[in-house]
Design a protein around this nucleic acid. Sequence first.
RNA 1: CGGUGAUUAGCGCAGCUUGGUAGCGCACUUGGUUUGGGUCCAAGGGGUCGCAAGUUCGAAUCUUGCAUCACCGACCA
Length: 569
Amino acid sequence: MRTSQYLLSTLKETPSSAEVISHQLMLRAGLVRNLASGLYTWLPTGLRVLKKVENIVREEMHRAGANEILMPMVQPADLWEESGRWDDYGPELLRLNDRHKRPFVLGPTHEEVITKLVANELSSYKQLPLSLFQIQSKFRDEIRPRFGVMRGREFLMKDAYSFHLEQDCLEKTYQTMFYAYCRIFDRLGLNYRPVLADTGSIGGDASHEFHVLADSGEDDIAFSDASDFAANVEKAEALAPVEERAEPSQKLAEITTPNVKNIDDVADFLNLDVKTIIKTLLVCGIENDQGDIPIVALVLRGDHQLNEVKVENLPQISSPLTFATDEQILSAVNCNAGFIGPVGLTIEVIVDRSAAQLSNFVCGANKNETHLTGVNWQRDCSENEIADLRNVVEGDPSPCGQGNIVIKRGIEVGHIFQLGTKYAEAMKCAVLNEGGKNQTLTMGCYGIGVSRIVAAAIEQNHDKYGIKWPEAIAPFQVAIVPMNMAKSARVKETAEALYKQLIQAGIEVLFDDRKERPGVMFADHELMGTPLLLIIGERNLDAQQIELKNRITGEKSLLAIDEIMSLFK
RNA sequence: CGGUGAUUAGCGCAGCUUGGUAGCGCACUUGGUUUGGGUCCAAGGGGUCGCAAGUUCGAAUCUUGCAUCACCGACCA
C-alpha cells in the first residue's frame, strides 16, 4: 500500500474526549473515529488490526474443532420471551419494532438464536458434541460507554457455543477451549492471565475469564504471590482467619457519638483502628409467601468492602442486591444508617468471617448518636450465620492455600463458561439418546472481545511516540520510508524496487511515498506502530545499504539491499 | 439515573466577566524555501459560535428551555 492511496488520518493533537491511552492513540494513529457515544467507525489501519485479531481467533477456533457460522444481529423478541431474558435483561437490551410493529432486539449475545438453531438441526446423540462459533457485532446499550472501543456499545465479539449430552463431555470441550484461548492470547503476544470467575447471571458451574493485565483495566484480579492461582476479586474467596477469636476482656459499654456517621468518623472519634469496628449494612432479602420483603443485616469489619456477587449468591438475599431504603432501615432497626449494630437485632444477621473473629469490638447501638464498645459475639449477641461476604484485600492468605493475595488490574478480553441446561431447557433443545429417549443438551459458551483486544493490546504496548504493535497484529509488517525521494532518483528507484519485491513476496508493506519531510514520516510511522522501518537515503546508498529500524527495540542497523528480503523468510 | 463540566473552523483552544460585524495554534490550499526527526517565509480557503425561544437598536457574550458529549458515582456481561 502506498500512503498516497491510503487514508492515513493521523492527528498531532489528542482529542479531548479520550481518557485512556489506547483510546487516545487509536484516534491519533487513525484507527477509529467516533460516530456517537459508544459507536466507532474503523478506519483502514484499525480494520487491518481488527481483522488480524479476528483471523487468529478464527484459526484457533477451527483448530479447537468449532464450525464457523454467522447469525443475524437483529433477533425476534419471541426468542427472548422463550428464554425469559426479555424480562430479565435490563435496558442494556436494545428493543425495536419493525414496520409491522413486531418486536425485535439488537443482539447483545446469541444464546437464544444458537440454541434454537441447534434444537432444529440436531436430532440424535450421534451428532454430538458440536461446537459452533461466529464473529459478529453485538450491541449492548451500556449505561456508560467509555474508553473508546474498550467499552463501546457496538463491538465485535467471537462467541462460541458447544452442545453435549453429558457433563463430562462438556468439561472436555471446556478444557479444549481453555487451551485454545491460551493459544490465541499467546499468539496475539499479550500478557494475559486466565482467572477464576463468577458465573454471574448466566448461571452454570465453571467459569474462567481471560484478562490482559493493564493498570487501566476495569476489573480487580486477585493473584497468589506463591502459586499460579488467579481469580476475579468478585470470586476470590476470603478465608476465615485461622487465629481463634480472643476471649472477651472488655465490658459492654454504650457511648454517645454525635455526628459520627461512618466508620472513619467512629475510628477518629474513639481513636481506634477501623479494624476493631464493624459495620452493619441492611439489604433486601427474598420476598416471602406473604409478599413481604424481609430486611437482612450484613456485618463486616470496618476496613473491608462488601462483595456484592458473593452476597447475591446467598440464598436468603435478593439478586440483584438491593440496599434497604432509609424508611426500611428505620422500621427494621429503629435508627438511622450509621448507628446499626448486631446487638439486639430481631432481623436475620449474616456475619462475615473476619468480622466474626473479632472480639471487644465497636458497633452501632441501634440508637441514633450511639455506639457500643467492648462488644463480643455470643456474650452480647447471639452466634449468627457466618459467611464470606467481603472482597479479598492485598495480604489476605490466598484461597489456594499457598502465599498471599496480590491485586492487579485486568481488562477482560475473554470469558468461558459451562452454561449447563438453562437455555437448552428453555428452547427445548434436545436429541434422542442411545436409549431412544429425549435428552436435553448441556451447553458451554465461550466469548472473546475482538475489538476490545485491539484496545487492550495498545494499553499494554505503547510508548511516548505511539503504539508498539505485537508483530502478529501490526497493521503493516514493514514501512518503506524514503528520504527526500522527490529529489533523489536513486532513492526513488531503490524504494520502488524494494516495494515491488515486498509486495510480490506477500509482505504487508506501507510505502511512504508522500512528499513529506523525514520527521513527519518517522513520527507517523512510530505513532502507527509499524514494527519495522526500512529507511532509504542517499547517505547509505553509496554502500548499497538501507537502514532498518525496529520500532519495538529501537535498534537500528544497516543492511545490504539484497539482504532485505531475507528478513521476511 | 444522580452529581460535575463542556459544546466557538477538521483537531486543540481563546473571546463571554463589562453585548457593538469572530480570533490563535495545528491541519488544509497556492507559491517559494528546506530535506536523516513534526523546517521557514508569504498569500489564501474554511464558522448559522450545539439547537430553540426570550431580553436588546444590536447576542458567541445576558436569561430560560432542550440536545449532545465527557468525567465521577450508581448500574452492568
